[in-house]
Amino acid sequence: MTFLTLDHLQKSFGPTRVVHDFDLGVEKGEFVSFLGPSGCGKTTVLRMVAGFETPTAGRVVIDGRDVTRLRPNQRQIGMVFQSYALFPNLTVAENVGFGLRTAGVPRAERAGRVAEMLALIGLPDLGGRYPWQLSGGQQQRVALARALAPRPRVLLLDEPLSALDAKIRVSLRNQIREIQQQLAITTIFVTHDQEEALSISDRIVVMHKGIADQTGTPAQIYNQPATDFVAGFVGTLNRFEAEVLDPARGLVRVEGAEIALDRPLPAGRITLAARPESLRIAAEGIPAEITGVEFLGSVQRLRARAAGREVVLDRFNEPGVALPQPGAQVRLAAAQAGWLVLPG
């Protein structure tokens, strides 16, 4: 039995169905990210867990108890909003202590817990300030402390980092992950930033048009995308049309180059794909012409034209090795495991 279970959740606003049959089990202490394009229903699912939306069908179960009919203030959930949503009339300490106050925790005990939370987020001295006296990153950390102070059973974060600038985003996401692991709190984190999801999650749910397309560890999502959508949405992907020569042995041909995949394939034509870092320049392989070279420091990004399409390949910088020049004719290959066969 999982700690948080979303059991066949559905949600319609009027005639439009926004969430179709969403099924998910989250283990205690697990960090799960919802990743998907704008409008795919991430927030809606999260709000059903929090209790702000009532599911059209399905159940939300926390720790074995069906909470689908409970109001948000009875669910013991912590929530962090994209816009921070700190109460402007209360100091940082009062904000953090809010959930304790509504729970009737005595003042002295409250003060201790607030100090503890402020120390946890690394802002021990800012308790007396008002929200407008804090930077965006500080406000969001206070919001996190506020959500965690009453020891919620589940923590929900709805794009908590997207209002912040890039640098703070990275450091704050690591801090969120650290605190989450330290407290071992069951967490759902909504984002549309794949790097964010890949870097801090135990598991990722890739959502698309109200459906969970794939649920898996970051490595699974990246290396073994279950659907065409997941493959295209997470990371960059180079696609090639391939003709299957021998379905049983997995031999295909792309632009005259034969590639042995060593796995059973359907007959006819398939789409092959490879991540930029899987492709390399080799003696044998798919013929291509280099069209551009970007030097990104540790990585070199080469753009090429192969089989009538734009192709990107990344390789690590090696000081002794010269960059290929635009216009150079090369051949592209990948290790067997680097080739993805896309469904459909």
């Binding site: 209790g51 702000f52 203030n73 929530m79 909003f81 949503a85 109460f87």
Partner: peptide, 10 residues
């Protein structure tokens, strides 16, 4: 969000 934050905080 203020209302919702308050509500979810009990």
């Amino acid at each position: 969000e203020w209302r919702e934050a308050a509500e979810v905080l009990g």
